[in-house]
Design a protein around this nucleic acid. Structure first.
Lengths: 350, 350
DNA sequence: GGGTACTGTGGGAGCGCTCCCACTTGTGAT
DNA sequence: ATCACAAGTGGGAGCGCTCCCACAGTACCC
């Protein structure tokens, strides 16, 4: 069985060969493969048959070169590698992004930038026109990466606003409503003196959670004593410190809303040391619904963020943004902000 | 400031422009950029200056198309996503692979195939000539993936032989020597009745660890009682079961070598229930040096595999293999098998 | 002096696509 | 019948590279 013709790429069929087989021109095959509507049904069927018979798979590089695109997006995580693997947050995001990209020809590049050297490499890399867009996750407020990307003119979607006026396209959980829901839940359980332990208030999300706390109390016409608010920093030690303060200032408190599970864990320790039972004396609610929430004693009521869904949404937005920048676009005015609802997971601590 | 000329790719300079700037031909710039030695020093300097001035970065797609390659390799993990994130093994491998690829133009594609549908997608993807090689990690003996890759003629490196006669290029830890070292250590501590809990013996690595155990005993002229060998399956429950058996068959044993830390943890539980102290009554050694080894009570002596180094070595091998298949190759006869030494991490359990 | 061998260099051809323009038909309005 | 216009199609040009052949220049040997 001799096959006279064989192209360079090891026998892989090209567009041209498919065209010959189907008895049509190159352009037509291209249209079919790319799902253009301007092809008659019979021609389309003939081409599709040829594609299957020959086992044709488009050459990525040729397509990318001709169309001046990369067919790839990067998921950039400005975080040390160890944290990337330690936090379930990232695996959830990755799963969501992966799911959204699954039905696409888009390739996902995972980029973990742990230091400034790697940040420089990434910048150089992106300048080389190797991705069509960037998904930015877990960015600190002072990171120069977003500005850098904006400078390159690369479509970018960020997870979690960095401020109220986030210039980049973003998706975020509804931190305000989540916090409000947590406090409402506490009030519904009959608690009246509800304290809160906040995250670092230079982080926008922490600010939102505090706002939600305030809104809930205000709506219920409850005591809005500032002594019930203890600022911390998202760490366990911070949670301990804040809880200690709170107990000193308002020994009569009967509930605590912590802006993260980790801080709630710190608070729990102090509560135990001081002989306050949970939820008997003090009800406790956290935020994030992380693994530790399930493993605490008693298990912690917590506000769950739809992380995977956030990842999926980010990818969708980015895809839309990329499509919008392409010449022959079905210019769809992609949304540039998406807020996803949170969910209160009730457990024994409240 | 009007710039008369602007190419399609948004002002990114091309080879041609660099050539014009440096006053040389296209070929010469290509040679410089690709590190060919056949360029005079002065020409090279001129070109390099032009590259820097223009901020030239080669267009990946064009290069891939012209050179008929992908400039990317895939790290394929046939495992459900949750396990990928749960096991530190993968993050270590990834770190090693990343390190080896860092100095390269090679892009790393992380592919987690959790089921047969995804396996099919991967096959189609790879058929599309999108990677130059594949790194295969954590493959079960009955997985069809390796054969599939071999069929595609893709350079492939696997971590851990699947059998003694592994046809693919592989890198593996020295399981035999690791096990032997563990048992030697136990003997040096004065133990004489040393049992072992094996992994699934259809896994080649488990077989090797058992061999190492046997070799160590044989070399010392010690009791090679088959009743001291309890087969298990790498799980904690299996470790418990095996330990229970062992205690029934040889209540006089004074040491146990488990072929994984997880099984050692199971054994530890049974030992505690039966009132045997560790290491007082029974010394315990595990394998893998995983997180749980450090967190056990007492901390577990364990055989450490150089996982990150294995990842690095895999990437090196793959790169060499790919280079060997390229036409104008410095045909270097890349090694196709690498065995890396293990290391005994001594802790309080022995 | 003419060969022979290098080293260094320029540039044509071509990789497999997409884009777009030109062309052929078919359809309906005039 | 004529024109206008859409739908459907073929194929040229060109994306930015690499490969390779041709050729100039220099060096060395008989």
């Amino acid at each position: 069985m001799t096959r006279g013709f064989r192209n360079r790429s090891g026998g892989r069929p090209t567009l041209e060969e498919v065209a010959a087989r189907a008895g049509v021109g190159r352009g037509t095959v291209s249209r079919v493969v790319n799902g253009s509507p301007r092809v008659s049904d019979e021609t389309r069927a003939a081409v599709e048959a040829a594609v299957v018979e020959l086992g044709y798979v488009p050459n990525r590089a040729a397509r990318a070169l001709a169309a001046n695109r990369a067919d790839a997006v990067a998921l950039v995580v400005p975080e040390v590698e160890s944290r990337f693997f330690a936090e379930p947050y990232f695996s959830d995001i990755l799963r969501g992004v992966g799911a959204a990209l699954d039905s696409t020809e888009m390739q996902l590049l995972l980029t973990i930038v742990g230091n400034d050297r790697e940040r420089g490499r990434l910048a150089h890399y992106l300048a080389g026109h190797r991705v069509d867009g960037v998904l930015l996750v877990s960015v600190r407020a002072d990171d120069p990466l977003p500005e850098l990307l904006a400078g390159l003119g690369l479509p970018t979607v960020i997870s979690g606003r960095r401020s109220e006026r986030e210039p980049l396209a973003w998706v975020d959980a509804d931190n305000v409503a989540g916090a409000r829901g947590a406090v409402d839940h506490l009030m519904a359980r009959g608690r009246r003196t509800i304290a809160t332990i906040t995250g670092r208030l230079d982080v926008y999300g922490a600010q939102c959670r505090l706002d939600g706390y305030r809104q809930a109390l205000a709506a219920a016409g409850l005591d809005a004593d500032e002594r019930l608010i203890a600022p911390a920093d998202f760490t366990e030690a911070g949670g301990r410190r804040a809880m200690t303060e709170l107990l000193e200032r308002r020994p009569d408190l009967d509930a605590v809303f912590a802006a993260s599970d980790v801080m709630a864990a710190g608070a729990r320790q102090v509560l135990r040391e001081r002989g306050r039972s949970v939820p008997g004396d003090v009800a406790l609610v956290g935020f994030d619904d992380s693994v530790i929430a399930r493993h605490m004693d008693p298990p912690l009521t917590s506000v769950r963020q739809p992380i995977e869904e956030m990842g999926r949404e980010m990818a969708r937005m980015l895809l839309a943004e990329i499509a919008d920048r392409r010449p022959a676009g079905t210019r769809s005015i992609a949304p540039r902000q998406v807020v996803l609802p949170t969910e209160l997971v009730t457990r024994a601590s409240s």
